[in-house]
Design a protein around this nucleic acid. Structure first.
Lengths: 252, 252
DNA sequence: ACCTGAACACCGTTCAAGT
DNA sequence: ACCTGAACACCGTTCAAGT
């Protein structure tokens, strides 16, 4: 049986009442785990902007100040969330014959992860992976590159850029999802994008051709492809680029 | 001679006083131009976070609501700022023999632009260039690619990814600058980064080697290089990648 | 037509006080 | 040791009212 104490106030006077409330289960203690769980729940439901120290406290039925006993600040909270989702990703056993495809697959899995947890990409932007989850992925990608014969310096810098790329793509996608959610009437991201692309193609086509000869001529190419087509192009670009430049950075 | 009217209030009572104030020059009318100027000034001085509709109104000596007569919202303000800095960039006359180097130079110039206007990279993140300034750059890059022989579809998608890359690099740099400004004691970004890199190398080196064999072995590579080294690597990677994949997207 | 004050519904963070 | 209410110093946006 839990005791529940309520304090009322009237001017300088405080009235304190303690009630036995047998229906109320004792509140679960706050932990980092529970805080991160709640943050991910809120993000998944209503996007990054719906998560604040206040909304989080509300969701956990506590005061906002209580959160600060477990996380230093908003930035640390974001780090914990990112680390959590990173730990969900499986890194492959390196196969030297197949490094390029393995690399692509890890990056595809990363994008899936961001997609599975809407709002997280925004939190990950500009974050350096120093937590265990992020390091595991870096370790996996480095292993695939280096056992595949890529020069260490190229491999190291590649991991950075590739992570940036995936995060940025996921972020843009989540911006579009958000934009669709508030306004637009659509409820399917694919359809919505096709609509916007059609309008963009139209708009580009109507620019003055003497000022924008290439944009007007290639309006279709500029707007073509859904997120996956563009992402696959990016993977192809990055991995082919890595193969091409690797040796130039062998002793940098 | 300007008339200045002041309203005082005491409960439901309003007292209005009009004074002739010959010292006061008539307030300049608010325009989009002036608003964008002020926003860029604030960003340059104190970073992206220092710019709010309120601080902006304060800087322009007006009320925050007045801004909304000229810009729809915060998002439009950011777009105007980005468009302004884009218009500062010179795009080259395409030289088909030299497309790869020309492309790199445009991207270097973009980074310089973001650097010259601290805080802007953050505003540009996740923005689709539909304004004139951004379109001019897209046009220039498309022209260099296509006259250089790159397939149109590869060229179009490349512009997207390259812009993303530059913006992300600039954004990360500005995060570090900010982080240095509030705390850390340093006042030179180079020195500060060297310090952080030294600590990171140390930290990576001390991870359990059986869990992180590659990260521990290549700790130096992971943290080596300043912003410019890494950026040049990225340019090399992207442009070499484009040369490699271009033909695969000739009829996509 | 343009500008303004005041309000509305929010932020992140701190701190003295409580249990 | 952990939790809480209340406060501090902010946000973006709207709107009736003023000139």
């Amino acid at each position: 049986v839990e005791k529940r104490t309520k304090t009322f106030r009237a001017g300088p006077v405080r009235i304190r009442v303690t009630t036995d409330d047998p229906g109320a289960r004792p509140k679960e203690r706050l932990t980092r785990e529970r805080i991160v769980d709640a943050a991910m729940g809120l993000m998944a439901e209503k996007g990054y902007d719906a998560v604040s120290m206040r909304s989080l406290a509300r969701a956990l039925d506590t005061g906002q100040a209580s959160l600060y006993a477990h996380v230093a600040n908003r930035e640390e909270l974001d780090q914990l969330v990112i680390d959590r989702i990173c730990s969900e990703l499986d890194v492959p056993e390196p196969d030297p014959e197949n490094w390029a495809e393995q690399l692509k697959q890890v990056l595809r899995d990363c994008l899936e992860l961001y997609r599975a947890h809407p709002g997280t990409a925004r939190a990950a932007m500009g974050m350096i992976p120093t937590q265990e989850g992020g390091l595991r992925i870096a370790e996996g990608m480095l292993a695939v590159c280096i056992t595949g014969g890529v020069s260490p310096q190229a491999a190291a810098w590649f991991c950075d850029i590739a992570a940036l790329f995936v995060c940025a793509v996921a972020h843009e996608e989540q911006i579009w999802t958000q934009r669709m959610a508030d306004g637009s009437g659509h409820d399917d991201l694919h359809e919505f994008h096709e609509d916007v692309d059609a309008q963009l193609t139209e708009a580009f086509g109507q620019l003055p051709p003497h000022l924008f000869p290439f944009v007007t001529s290639y309006a279709r190419e500029l707007t073509s492809g859904d997120g996956d087509d563009r992402f696959e192009f990016g993977l192809d670009l990055l991995v082919s680029g890595l193969a091409a430049v690797s040796e130039r950075y062998r002793d940098a």
